[in-house]
Design a protein around this nucleic acid. Sequence first.
DNA 1: ATTACTAGTAGACGAGTAA
DNA 2: TTTACTCGTCTACTAGTAA
Lengths: 201, 201
Amino acid sequence: MDDYVALSSRELGDALEMSQQSASKRILELLDEKLIIRDLGARKQRIKLTQNGVDELKQEYGEYRRIFEVNDQITLHGVVVDGLGEGGYYICQAEYMNQFEAKLGFRPFEGTLNVIIDKEDLSKLDIIRSSSGKIIDGFSNNGRTFGRVVVYKAKIRNIDCAIVMPERSHYDNIIEIVCQYHLRRTLSIGNGDRVEIKVKI
Amino acid sequence: MDDYVALSSRELGDALEMSQQSASKRILELLDEKLIIRDLGARKQRIKLTQNGVDELKQEYGEYRRIFEVNDQITLHGVVVDGLGEGGYYICQAEYMNQFEAKLGFRPFEGTLNVIIDKEDLSKLDIIRSSSGKIIDGFSNNGRTFGRVVVYKAKIRNIDCAIVMPERSHYDNIIEIVCQYHLRRTLSIGNGDRVEIKVKI
DNA sequence: ATTACTAGTAGACGAGTAA
DNA sequence: TTTACTCGTCTACTAGTAA
């Protein structure tokens, strides 16, 4: 996923218990489907997954997770941090606020709680993104464009809240949480405190 | 996994994008490999995975996890509980103790810390089991048999410890932890407290 | 409706081999 | 050594159909 890997068609054939010829054919098929890219050197080819290829595997992984994770909620673990202030500003737009109220059942407190998700829980974000959040439409205001966002209902220490993500995610490890209440005050949490967020999927 | 599911060969064929005939053949093959069992009623067959079938899928799931979980450690979350006392008794056997000391690098405190693992982390136990723990050989003492166990190095709040599991696991949601120190006293934890266990895999 | 057999066929596979 | 073409074989698939 991260870098090219030297892998001859014979090695792949051995690993897949098939002939060198068939392995070579498979590699050509994967190239054709744009799931891998290749650097065909003089001596040994070097192969790397494309984003499409990684996504394909991640989807499969997500399906396995859905089979084996018993519950219909995913628990994220992370640490409260200061946001860049941006999230809070976005959220405060009336058009967003009205849609939040309609689709979440509560009008968020003005501002978001930012949480850095633990490294080992980052893959859970993919599962959440591939689940059915609620779409909040974008709009323009004073010449500025506010994009579509998706909200996922969640709970922190049994308080209803929601995770807000831009529709086109830029694979951030920080999530923004909106809530009817001022979460830092209500839960007495601050920067550096560990929190658990249970997301309905 | 839990119950029979009504699934005709035509439905399976549609789902797998193949003919009814091929789907029927596949079902017969899976039966032959003892991955599923079937209840062939008059109207519609009902199919259920065998333990072998579930294990096969779980292994695949584990491989995906190993690909996508970035780090080489798994974090378990759970709640401290009283053990049945059994674990502590077993551990105290000198033959076990000597092997622990040789293979873990510390001689455990006499007794184990029992932790009920959260429902959503149970699948992680399968990953841990399929990773390479250290084997502690079984033995007999006074006519009583003490089975082989496997230990996995771990940390609780940065203190070295190890998870001890019987080799043939009976899918328990309670794990037993051994440590050089008295964990309850050292960490000031007791029944009902939440703990995080980081397991090296 | 079902499941699943038989028979015919298309496609996957590997041996041989070129580059 | 590589990769990958051609071609013969054999498997895996589906159509037809019985139970």
